[in-house]
């Protein structure tokens, strides 16, 4: 029983990472109805920008804020410049562009900052807090910031006009144009916000996994899994989904004999796929009711 609780706690700690990323995934999914495969690399790139700012001696929280702003603008510009010309192309062409962006960001980061592993500071320190040292200061801080971001997003979409316009543009682009919403701008804004949330995720994750161009590879996948588990439509569901993935991964590694430890990742993924087979809207996905 004690191991069980230990493993659940450890799962929650890593789950915090996935929850962050899942949140970013849901942000973009809401705006464009695709999973953006380049999102992890974009977050990694943002994290490198933060690292560079820190290297230049800018204080942590200022660098944090600056990185978010830069990522927001960067995401917006990226959408408006790369995706606008092909917004009528088929889905698969979009996926290929994501793959291209993946290659570009990865290669650029390696070129500018090289491929050596860099430590990244945490503002929360690493002192063990509770759970037998499994949840340290940074883990706790990460979880809190994730929840704060979630709260901000919730308020933004619920209570601001721009948030409402973004939801409308995503839900029904044609009708959105008919009420005067500039749908393209909203899509760009969605990209900007997703990339800003991704930047937060990257900065929080980097102290745990260390900074290098490939740091986001498997994390993005867990983020996808968390987001899908959460139903892809609700930011809250994504965060819960992220934690669930972390816990499932840890428990699979501990309790499944022989192959458990070696196949932690595939087992976690397959469990999630299995969940989807039986509940295709995800665990926390909301059903949109429609009468015709």
């Amino acid at each position: 029983m004690e191991t069980f609780i230990q493993q659940v706690l450890a799962g929650i700690a890593t789950g915090g990472i996935y929850a962050c990323m899942a949140l970013a995934v849901v942000m973009i999914y809401q705006a464009i109805h695709h999973l953006n495969f380049a999102q992890g690399e974009m977050a990694m790139f943002s994290t490198f920008i933060a690292w560079q700012l820190l290297q230049w001696g800018i204080p942590y929280w200022l660098a944090f804020g600056l990185t978010i702003v830069i990522s927001l603008i960067g995401g917006y510009v990226l959408e408006r410049s790369v995706f606008k010309p092909i917004h009528n192309a088929p889905v698969l062409s979009h996926i290929v562009i994501f793959i291209a962006l993946f290659a570009i960001f990865n290669s650029l980061a390696g070129f500018i900052w090289d491929f050596t592993i860099k430590p990244f500071p945490s503002p929360f320190g690493n002192a063990p807090l509770f759970g037998g040292g499994l949840i340290g200061g940074h883990q706790a801080g990460m979880i809190i910031i994730t929840l704060v971001v979630l709260l901000i997003l919730f308020a933004f979409f619920r209570y601001t006009r721009v948030g409402l316009a973004m939801r409308a543009a995503a839900a029904n682009p044609e009708s959105a144009k008919l009420v005067g919403i500039r749908v393209g701008v909203m899509t760009g804004l969605g990209w900007g916000m997703a990339s800003a949330v991704g930047a937060v995720a990257g900065i929080l994750i980097a102290p745990v996994v260390f900074l290098e161009p490939n740091m986001m590879l498997s994390i993005l996948l867990y983020g996808f899994a968390g987001a899908v588990l959460g139903g892809l439509s609700s930011p809250g569901g994504a965060v819960l989904g992220g934690f669930t993935v972390g816990v499932v991964e840890n428990l699979a590694g501990t309790y499944i004999p022989v192959v458990g430890a070696e196949l932690k990742l595939p087992i976690a993924l397959f469990l999630i796929v299995a969940v989807l087979v039986f509940k295709p809207t995800g665990l926390f996905g909301q059903r949109v009711v429609q009468r015709v």
Binding site: P90, I97, I99, A100, I104, N106, F111
Partner: peptide
């Protein structure tokens, strides 16, 4: 990697399908 990505993007621009 960046060159590969750029070529891929250009290709999709020239022939989206």
């Amino acid at each position: 990697g960046a060159m590969y990505g750029l070529m891929l993007i250009l290709l999709i621009y020239v022939m989206p399908t």
